[in-house]
Design a protein around this nucleic acid. Structure first.
Lengths: 244, 244
DNA sequence: CCTCACTGAAAGGTGTTACCAATGGTGGGG
DNA sequence: CCCCACCATTGGTAACACCTTTCAGTGAGG
């Protein structure tokens, strides 16, 4: 084979254009490819050893995420961050993997503070019996794991609980944020922003949220969730503010 | 600037695959193509009279929005609504144009209630002097137009004000919701959910938000925006609840 | 001599066709 | 009942014609 294939290592499931997409998406979101920089299909072909079709499909995908625009004669131009589709899970993923991680985490946390209290309130109104039961069960398990300091399984339950609340809210816009919230929770743990042992207040508040939702007390659920997230935000404060 | 040449139509917007994408996107989001339904590239080619390349690129775009998945041999399968990327502006647009419009509008309004108060608070902290001035100016203009009952230009100012607040918040996740909020405001007016003349309370509240943000009083801005959106939600109540 | 508008060629994305590779469901044969 | 070959269908490559946009060169007019 004359052409050197760039393999991301994943191999199975990762179709060819996907690896190219990943590489370019990472570079753009990381700023290695700055806004205004130009790309050409020929350049993509040569650099990744792919055909024109794959290069084009990749560009379309990038364009559909707002990372580039493609104009005739002028080529493909990298777009500035404010035209990126920051709700696209892939964009979030790339940014969490790159240097913009703490900025991203900060914005996402503020989004959580906005959305999750209302989602909890809605869940208190709309959740099924099964969901309410699972919620209470999760709170119990979280306390056990949290008090024994096993962070990773604790994170898994934390993710499940917040996802469940979003899903139970019945609002599709909230449901769609499940991946976002999961990414934040995972990133927070992996960034070392969690204490070695979850603080008792957090455990109590999770418990309070679960019970309020299960009991259908939507106002209590909302304020409990609000306090829980205030706790989260305060725990995050130590990161450098990074004000431009 | 300086270019006075007028492009045909929207210029770049009307490429070939775009119309195919639009047609299929509309059909899927409208439910005409039900989840589980299959598509084939040949079918697309034949139906729209396009080449294989265009058909494939269209499928990639649809796949990137979570509307379909494409697996070897098994074909392209329409996905259920809960895997759609509902924050993608095109998906929002299609759903607002189809039968899911009121459900969509309701979810989006709940999202606004979650996000905009916090965005207003953040704007009160972060906005530039220029943005604060523009905000006050907008409130004055809105009152004039609102009291004279000219709904369409009123809507334009309304959109500008809410967009400005989101932008001024400095949170990229909030900024990215500009299109969403604009779509809601536009859809609300076009759906006839607005009174012929904006109620005085709404005008007062817009004024209050603008002044609080301009003065940097973030708590006042937040509560004013919250009351404003409560007003919006109540005005929306007459639509049928549609409880599944 | 300088400025501006026209023109034509080059560049690069857009779309088409043909072809081969990989894959997994289907059905026939043992 | 199980296994295997077939083949439909998507994934990927290559070569080509087309069309729009840009830019440089050129010539006319001030």
């Amino acid at each position: 084979m004359g052409k050197e294939r760039v393999d991301t290592g994943a191999g199975n499931g990762a179709s060819l254009h996907h690896s190219v997409l990943d590489a370019l998406g990472l570079e753009i979101t990381a700023g290695t490819l700055a806004p205004g920089d130009g790309l050409t299909l020929d350049g993509i072909q040569e650099r990744f050893g792919v055909s024109r079709t794959v290069a084009r499909e990749t560009m379309r995908l990038l364009e559909s995420m707002g990372l580039v625009v493609s104009r005739r004669r002028v080529g493909i131009t990298v777009q500035p961050p404010d035209s990126w589709h920051v709700y696209d899970p892939r964009v979030i993923w790339w940014r969490l993997a790159g240097p913009g991680r703490d900025t991203q985490l900060r914005s996402l946390t503020e989004l959580r503070i906005a959305v999750e209290p209302l989602a909890a309130a809605a869940a208190a109104r709309e959740a099924t019996t099964h969901q309410r039961e699972r919620l209470l069960q999760l709170a119990v398990e979280m306390r056990a794991l949290g008090e024994s300091g096993r962070l990773d399984p604790f994170m898994d339950l934390d993710i499940e609980m917040h996802s469940l609340l979003l899903r139970a809210s019945g609002n599709e816009m909230f449901v769609a944020l499940t991946d976002v919230v999961s990414a934040v929770l995972r990133g927070r743990t992996q960034l070392g922003l969690m204490p070695h042992r979850p603080v008792p207040e957090a455990l109590d508040l999770h418990d309070e949220v679960a019970r309020a939702v299960a009991a259908g007390e939507h106002e209590a659920a909302e304020t409990a969730m609000r306090r829980l997230l205030a706790e989260v935000r305060d725990a995050m404060a130590p990161i450098r503010p990074r004000k431009p």
